[in-house]
Simulated assay, not measured.
Amino acid sequence: MKQRPAFTNTIAAQVDEYSSTFAAQVGPVLAAVFAREQEDLRRAGLPSGIAGVGDRLPDAVLFDTTGHRTRLGDVLGAAAAIIVFYRGSWCPYCSIALQTYQRELRPVVEAFGTRLIAISPQAPEISLRTASDAGLNFALYSDEGNALAGHLGIVTVPSAESMRARAALGIDVAGSNMDRTAAIPFPTVVVVDATGTIRMIDVRVDYTTRTETWEIIDALITL
């Protein structure tokens, strides 16, 4: 049996390191707001109606980083794929995850001959800046109005209190999205086979946690 690659700098370890200085960066009042938001999300748990293993991935209109309109089916073709839904470039936990996937997952994906794409509701020009700033070499797409995320049942809206806290930090969630609303996807990784059938879907209601690289690779191995 092929041994799983060792990934020492996990997303969880990077988040722990970031979190150790987070309160000092934003101050105790705002840190408490985000802590309450995370606790409320964990308490609420997964919403009903989320797509599951064995479901077919719906087709949807997406926009690439130049604003060109395309369809998910044309992007994926007949290849198996990993689709990463992230909240936006304003989310530090999304940045940690995307850069980890760039570093650890992209080379493996190429070896498997699969696709790796990331999708958010933010405007194409912001996705372009995200890819450039983070040094990402996989494709980023915009899901206007969370159309695809909505079909998968993974859309949420931040609380009013957390939105005010983010605004105090200069973060405009709605202003960064194509539809100018604050709706965002739960951080989610979907693995589909060449027929477009979902073989893994990992939805994280607590946005400080993410799917680790080895979990995605294990799903790829089973295809």
Rank of each mutant, 00 (worst) to 15 (best):
A31I: 08
Q14T: 06
G27I: 02
D16R: 14
R42V: 08
V29C: 09
Y18F: 13
I11P: 01
G27D: 03
F22I: 01
F34P: 05
A23E: 07
A31V: 05
R36L: 05
I11Y: 01
E39A: 09
F34K: 00
Y18G: 12
S19D: 14
F34M: 03
E39G: 14
D40S: 15
T10E: 09
F22R: 08
T21D: 11
L30C: 03
D16C: 14
S19K: 08
A13T: 06
N9M: 15
E17S: 15
G27E: 06
E37P: 05
L41M: 11
Q14S: 07
Y18Q: 13
A31N: 11
V15W: 01
S20I: 03
E17T: 12
A31G: 10
V15G: 11
F34G: 03
E17F: 08
R42W: 06
A32L: 02
S19Q: 11
P28R: 15
S19F: 08
T21Y: 10
I11K: 00
R36A: 03
E17I: 05
E17W: 07
N9R: 13
T10D: 08
V33S: 05
V26E: 07
A13G: 13
Q38M: 14
T21M: 10
D40W: 05
S20L: 04
E17Q: 14
Q14K: 13
A32Q: 02
A31H: 02
A23N: 09
A12I: 05
S20Q: 07
A12W: 00
Q25F: 09
Q38C: 12
L30E: 01
T21R: 12
A13V: 08
V15F: 09
D16P: 03
P28M: 10
V33P: 00
Y18I: 01
E17P: 02
E37L: 00
I11D: 04
D16T: 10
E17G: 08
F22T: 01
T10K: 01
L30R: 03
V29Q: 12
V26L: 02
G27Q: 02
Q38N: 15
Q25E: 05
F34H: 02
A12Q: 15
R36N: 10
Q14M: 03
T21K: 14
A12Y: 06
P28K: 15
Q25D: 14
L30M: 10
A23L: 11
A35F: 06
V33F: 04
N9Y: 12
F34D: 03
S19Y: 03
T10V: 14
S20A: 04
A24L: 05
D16W: 13
A24H: 04
L41S: 09
R42C: 10
E39L: 14
N9A: 15
Q25M: 09
A12M: 04
N9S: 11
A32T: 14
Q25C: 11
D40Y: 14
A23T: 06
A32F: 07
F22V: 00
Q38S: 15
V33M: 02
R36T: 08
Q38L: 15
I11W: 07
Q38I: 07
A23P: 01
E37Q: 11
E37C: 08
A31D: 03
A13D: 06
P28C: 12
A23I: 02
V29G: 04
